[in-house]
Design a protein around this nucleic acid. Sequence first.
DNA 1: TTGACGTGTGACAGCGCTGTCATTACCGCT
DNA 2: AGCGGTAATGACAGCGCTGTCACACGTCAA
Lengths: 355, 355
Amino acid sequence: MGSKKRDSSRVTLSDVARLAKVSAITVSRCIRNPERVSEDTRVRILRAIDDLGYVPDMAASALASKRSNVVGLVIPSLTNSVFTDVLKGVYDAIEETRLTVQIGNSRYSPSKEENLIRTFLQQRPAGLIVAGVNHTEAGRKMLEASSCPVVQIMDVTDKPVDRLVGFSHFEGAKAAVRHLHDMGYRRPGILTARMDPRSRVRLAGFTEEAQQLGIFEPARVVSTPLHSSVGLGAQLFSDLLAQAPDTDSLFCNNDDLATGALFEAARRNIRVPEALGVCGYNDLDISAEVNPSLTTIATPRYEVGLQSVQMINAALDPEGEAAPPPVILGTKLVPRQSTRRRPMPSVGIHSGETT
Amino acid sequence: MGSKKRDSSRVTLSDVARLAKVSAITVSRCIRNPERVSEDTRVRILRAIDDLGYVPDMAASALASKRSNVVGLVIPSLTNSVFTDVLKGVYDAIEETRLTVQIGNSRYSPSKEENLIRTFLQQRPAGLIVAGVNHTEAGRKMLEASSCPVVQIMDVTDKPVDRLVGFSHFEGAKAAVRHLHDMGYRRPGILTARMDPRSRVRLAGFTEEAQQLGIFEPARVVSTPLHSSVGLGAQLFSDLLAQAPDTDSLFCNNDDLATGALFEAARRNIRVPEALGVCGYNDLDISAEVNPSLTTIATPRYEVGLQSVQMINAALDPEGEAAPPPVILGTKLVPRQSTRRRPMPSVGIHSGETT
DNA sequence: TTGACGTGTGACAGCGCTGTCATTACCGCT
DNA sequence: AGCGGTAATGACAGCGCTGTCACACGTCAA
């Protein structure tokens, strides 16, 4: 082995054209708008492409058309499985298209996000997908001024920059509180970490719903700027117990925290769901497996990834002009053992429960 | 808002050149080989670049130089956190460079991997990073014939295609078995799922070490072609108990399976570590948090991502010619509660244990 | 028959950059 | 004085593709 250097001789459009006995333009057209060449030539061209193993040169195409086939994806984390699920959806959808993805990791930093947006935009992307609806002022301006379709994801707003596919964290959190109340819990607390905008909204939803139900108690709110993790969930739960020992239930800002709380409860011999109800948020794979299994709010992360790409793709189609209305996907309460204090009302949604 | 269309007027090399009163070539050189232009002009050019906000057009550059700045990354999963950790390392390292990443998800399919390799290679990437050392014959041929640096990651082999940064799954598995033996367990079983090449090697390592210790028992090997998950771990553990009820310890092919086994043991009131020792593989975040905390083999996933990019980058440097020797990172046994049957020997490595 | 129109195809230029070679200026050496 | 050598810069062509416009047909209504 050793050092490798460049090769040469690439099959180009005109090679194909020569073989198919047409001009290069026609081949190009045949690839991009098959319906604009005659059946006859199309067949010939496709055969020639196949015979020669022709592969379009994206750099040349991007240069000539002033349009790349790159979709920029700006997400705040590459390890949080919430976003890797989105990623999976994005990649699964992109496979069907002639687009490619480029990921930018903002690490939950608005200014990093702004830089990523700038960098992407400078590359004339085919489209941009950004997590969240909160950006720096400059970031938002750039998105608005951009000449490509922009899809905001994972949240809702009444003033999207362009397109949007998300779901309401507010409603999700409210549903969780309602569920705790339905199950007979009257002293719910909330555990929240890394206060990104979406976490904040969930806290607001928790607060509003609890207030409406007359069961809100500020002392039962525990938050930290640290990034959430299972370990942190245990920690925060301990903190909560210290400051409000009579707490009878928990809404955790995500399943990691909830899982940690569950583990801590087990270590303290606090019986779940009898003495403590626990509800998470996201419905990660593990949530169905822990003991007791975790009640949570399922979020359509994969679906968001999928649909955001489809939106970009639709926007690129010269037909589909105007931006479609925002797509608001639903969240779904998944009741499991961790809140099953009283006989379940007839809600059965998820399987996978042990008992 | 609504439909967006293209803009125009981009700052180009010659705009910069005009302002700096040099030719376009000189600007290009100044950007790529700053040391080849005089101090004087360099300063002028850099100021001009700054003033105009010039950003190089990668498409044009790729077209002219027949070399892109794209590093292809082929991994078998986008959700398995083992690979998202690698991904994180890759992205953290790539930020320091002028390169960009493009991910291909092979979904554990060798033929999909082959296609991805082909697709990437056709795009004249700056480099290629592929997970594993097992490829289809055609895939390997393409990699060997490729004109760009190739880094195989996450495994070891004595015949790397080009460069390699990985770790030995064989040794990791052996260490796990040895540890179980050290802790007094004599009837270890193994749970393995999704038999990708690395899983297979771990099974082989388990088998060899157990045989050498005289504690191997074929009936205690449980495997399935399904993808591993926490739920599957519970399932496989149940299967193992059915066919070898006297099993006293478990090496699980990864921490997901191990976690599932731990949960199932809890449901069956099997005491861990007293009645059952459990050792996982990978050391995911959650492994330190479960009850009891999970003994496991830590793998340097993030480091692998980081170093693989650095290797590509070094290879691109016109100086650093020959391929460096393979980098074999170590795995590390992290003893925790789940195997603490007898007083710990003096191995203490990890903190974070609750006791 | 004429012309307006639609369909399928081609000629041409040029996207923004880099590889290659040429050029200039200046150095130190015989 | 004449030479080769080096450092700094420039001229030119062209990477492979696409946008634009032009053209050759055939069709159909007037």
